[in-house]
Amino acid sequence: MKRQIPLIIVITLGFMFVAHSFIPHTISQDFLTWFQDWMKAISPFAVVLGIMSLFMVHGKKISYKAPNWQYSIVTLAGLIFTALTGFIWGTQAGTPYMWIFKNIQMPMSSTMFALLAFYIASAAYKAFRARSPEATVLLVAAIIVMLGQVPLGTMISKWIPISSKWILNVPNLASKRAIMIGVGLGMTATSLKILLGIERTYLGGGD
């Protein structure tokens, strides 16, 4: 029963949504609005799950004094403190909450991404290998496109930007299109499997 009822819910709602996509009638639109309203009401609680799991993971670390448990204190303190500043002083511009966002959260998140440039360079040296003819073609195409982006490429030969453009317009287009069709079909199949109750991984373990 613990699995059947959720399965029935998915299948019923799923088929209603299949019908919805072909029916433009107001009744069908109202169904969507109803669903969205309910989803919106469910959504805020998902963050509770996030907070709880963070507290459980780090709480455990702290209580067992796992290696580097001190940093778990930092995480939890950062969480509590940031949330509190938001609740106490509000979330408008100029509040401590926004200051934290601008000067702590934002620089760190963009720096995390910027780290990738270093990794790409190191991977270029150590890992981007022409292991196979396919990988060789890929790397050659990549080099042409990269050269096409900088003035030096044009200075070497005017064919570099032209071939870079051709790569984007022809092979890239064909591969994007074919992959899109394939992935679209694969996703449809998975959705269909969920809909028919064949795919139940999302229900998780247990009975």
Partner: peptide, 30 residues
């Protein structure tokens, strides 16, 4: 990329699979 590069540095055999088109090239090369 960060994972696969590190994995290739440790000398492990790596097998990847994804439908994220922007990441496939990095998987293929690493």
């Amino acid at each position: 990329l960060i994972m696969t590069e590190n994995g290739s540095a440790t000398g492990a055999i790596q097998i990847a699979g994804t439908d994220a088109v922007t990441q496939i090239p990095f998987f293929i090369t690493t």
